[in-house]
Design a protein around this nucleic acid. Sequence first.
DNA 1: TATGAATGAGTCTTCATTCAT
DNA 2: TATGAATGAAGACTCATTCAT
Lengths: 222, 222, 222, 222
Amino acid sequence: MNIHSLAMTSTAKTTSTAAPSRPSQRVLAADKAQDRREAIMAAALSLFVERGFYGTAVPEIAERAGIGAGTIYRYFDSKEALVNALYRAEKMKFAQNVVERVNAAGPGREPARELFRRLWMHMAQFAIDHPQSFVFLELHHHAAYLDAESRALEHRMLQLFGMVIVSAQTRGELKAGDPRLMMGMVMGGFIGVIRSCMENNTPLAKADWPFAERCMWEAIRA
Amino acid sequence: MNIHSLAMTSTAKTTSTAAPSRPSQRVLAADKAQDRREAIMAAALSLFVERGFYGTAVPEIAERAGIGAGTIYRYFDSKEALVNALYRAEKMKFAQNVVERVNAAGPGREPARELFRRLWMHMAQFAIDHPQSFVFLELHHHAAYLDAESRALEHRMLQLFGMVIVSAQTRGELKAGDPRLMMGMVMGGFIGVIRSCMENNTPLAKADWPFAERCMWEAIRA
Amino acid sequence: MNIHSLAMTSTAKTTSTAAPSRPSQRVLAADKAQDRREAIMAAALSLFVERGFYGTAVPEIAERAGIGAGTIYRYFDSKEALVNALYRAEKMKFAQNVVERVNAAGPGREPARELFRRLWMHMAQFAIDHPQSFVFLELHHHAAYLDAESRALEHRMLQLFGMVIVSAQTRGELKAGDPRLMMGMVMGGFIGVIRSCMENNTPLAKADWPFAERCMWEAIRA
Amino acid sequence: MNIHSLAMTSTAKTTSTAAPSRPSQRVLAADKAQDRREAIMAAALSLFVERGFYGTAVPEIAERAGIGAGTIYRYFDSKEALVNALYRAEKMKFAQNVVERVNAAGPGREPARELFRRLWMHMAQFAIDHPQSFVFLELHHHAAYLDAESRALEHRMLQLFGMVIVSAQTRGELKAGDPRLMMGMVMGGFIGVIRSCMENNTPLAKADWPFAERCMWEAIRA
DNA sequence: TATGAATGAGTCTTCATTCAT
DNA sequence: TATGAATGAAGACTCATTCAT
C-alpha cells in the first residue's frame, strides 16, 4: 500500500521532438518546449482558479503565458485536453508532495496518531506551497470535462486513503464508521481551514495548522 | 443576536406592477408575476447545479421555466443579476431554515453541546430537503460573478456564527482558537459528508448524520 | 417508371412555427420564415457557385442574404447541413422542371428520338432559367460534404435515366453499349455546351440548342 | 499550327541557384532543387485531387513531399502560386502528351476521321496514364484562384483545337456549327466517360473507349 | 539552405440580449 | 405584457505564412 500504485499511464501529447541534427540542439529545443508547456499550464492553472474552466478563454491563457493563441494547440489538442493534463499533473504533484513523503517517513507500523499528524502537516505544507494547485484540485473534483483517466486517478487516491483508515479502525485507533464518510469529513475540515483563510485574507502560512490538526484528530479518534 | 440581523437591503428589480385598475387584479397580477419569478429561479437553480453558470444558456432556463426567453429580462436585468438574486434567495432560505429554527427552539442559555447538535441536524435536514440549494450555495461560494451585496450577505452570516462560537468559548465549552477557523472546519466537515455521499451515490437521507455530528463536536469541544 | 419514385424523405430543419395565437399571424410568420430560408439558400447558391463550398464563409452568405450571421443557424444546423439542403432542393427543382415535364408530355410509348429531344430541350430550358442551379449541381456532384441522403437522391435519378436508355436499346433505337457510359457522354456533352457558353460569355439562351441536340442524338442513335 | 504555339511565358519562381563554386556542384544542386520542386508538385497534385484546394493544408503537402513545411515557400511564393504552377504544368503535360503526339503522327493533310480518332485515343491514353492530372485539370477549370496566365494558357489550347475544327468544317467533313460549341460537346462527352467510370468504380483502362469515340465522332461528323 | 515551431487572422458556431409583433 | 426570432460579439480552433535556428 503505497503511492507507487498511483503510477500513471498518460496518453496525452508529449513533447517528443523527433531527433534534430545535433544532440545539444535537441536538448535545448526539448527544454524550450517543456518550458512552454509549463508556462501554458501555469497560466491555465491561475486562470481556471480565478474564473473557472468555462469562464476562461483560451486566448486569455495564451496571453498570460506570453505566447500566441494558436501555440496552445501545438501542446494540447483542445481546451479540455489542457484541463485534464493540468488536473493530472496537479494531482500527481499533490501525491508526490504528500503521500510519498508520508510513505517515505513512516517505518511501516506506526500509531495512527502519528500518521495522521504527518499527513495533515504535509498537506498543509503543500497547500502553503501551492495554494492554487490545491484550490484547482478542489474546484474540479467532479467537473464534467474531466475524462475517464483523470477520474480513475482520483479514485485510486481515495482508495489509498480509505485503506489507511480501515486499517487504523481495525486496530481500534479510530472511531468505527463509514471510512468514506470519515475521509470526507477530514478532507472537508482541511478545506474549511483553507477557505476560512482565503475569506479572511489570512496567508495560509499564518493559519494555526497544529491546532486544526488536533481538532480533526479528535473528530476521528476512537 | 438572531437571524433578523440578516435583513436584506436588496436593490434588485422587484415586481412592482404599476397601479392596475382594481385591487383584486393587482393582487392577481402580482401573484402571477411572483410565480413567474419563482419559476425562473427554480429553473435556474437546477440548471446551474447541473451544468454551472457558464454552461447554462438563458434560453434553456426560460424553456425549463416554461416561458419565453425574452421574459426573463422582464424579471432580471441580466444573467448575472439572476444568479446573484438566486444566490441571495437561497442563502436567505438557508438562514430561515437553519438559523431561525435553531434560534426559535432555543430558550436562550443552553449548553453549546445542545446548540451544536440542533444546528448540525437542522443543516442536515436542510441539505436533505433542498439538496440543490445546498450544492448551489457551495459551488458559487466565491464565484467571480457574485456582486458585493451577495458577498456581504455571506459575510454577515459568518459573523453571526462566529459570535455564537466566541460566546461558547468564553464559557469554556469549546476549544480556544480562531473562531473563524473553527467555523470553517465545522462547515467543511459538513460539506465533506455531503460530498462523500454524492461521490458514492448515497442518498443524503441515508448518511449517518448523528455519527458525523458527534465527530465534529469532538473536534471543537473543549 | 416516373419521377414520383424520387419522393424525398427530408429530415432537415423545417420552419414549423409552433402555433402562435392568431391564424393570420401564424401564416405571416411562417411566410416570413420561409422567405428568409429561401433568401439564405439563394445567397448560398450564388456564393457556392462563385467560390465553392470551402471558399465561402458563412458570414458572407449572411451578408448577401441581408441577415445576421447567427440567423443562418436558426434555419440550418451547420454550413454542411445548408449545402445538403441546397443540393437536395436544387436537385428536386431540376427533377420537377425536367423529368416531370418529360413524363407529363409523353403518352407513354413514343419514339426515343422524340423523348430525347424533349429531355434535351427541357434540360436546356432549365439551364437557361436556372444557370446557377445547374452549375451548382454539377460542381457538387461528388463532394465529400454531401450526406447519404443527397447521394441517394442523385443515385435514384441516374437509375431512372438508365432505365430509359436500356428500354430504348431493347427496341433497337439506340446503339448497344454500357448505358451508364452513354448517359455519361450525353450529360457530359450537355455540360460541355454550357461550359463553352460560359467560357465565351455567351448567354445560354443564345446557344444553338437544337443543333447540339441533333449532334448528341447522332452520338447515341443506333 | 502546332503545339509550339503554346510556349509559356511563366513569371513564376524558378530554381536559379546563385552561382555555387564548381560547375558540377551547381548541376547537382539544381537537380536536387528540381527534384524537390517536382516532389512538392506531385504531393500537391494528389492532395488537391483527393481533398480540393481549400481542403488541403500546406503542411500536409510538405509532409507527403517528405520535406519541411517552410521549404515549400522557397519554391513557391504562396499556396495559390503553387496551384497555378501546378495547373500550368499539368496543362503543358497534357498538351505534350496529346496534341504533340497527334501533330507528330499526322503527315499533315489527313482525313478528319483519322485525326479525331487519334486525338480521342491519345486523350484516353493520357487519362489512363495520368488520371490525377486529368481530374485535377477538370476540377480547377474555372477556379477563382487561377490567375490570368493560367487562364490564358487554357484559352490558347482551346483556340488551337478550334482551328482544327474550322479547318475540317471547311472541307465538309464536320457538321457546320459553332466550333467552340462542338469542341465543348466533344470534351464534355470525353469527361462524361471518365466521370461515369469514376462513379461506377470502373478502371479507366476498362472503359470502352473505341465505342465512345465512334459515338462522339458521329455527333460531329457532317 | 532547410526546418518546423510560432503566430494571428480568419473560420464556424454559440448565446446573452434586444425588439418588433 | 410576453414572446421568440434576430443579432453580433466572442469563443474554440485551424492554417497559411514567417523566421530563428
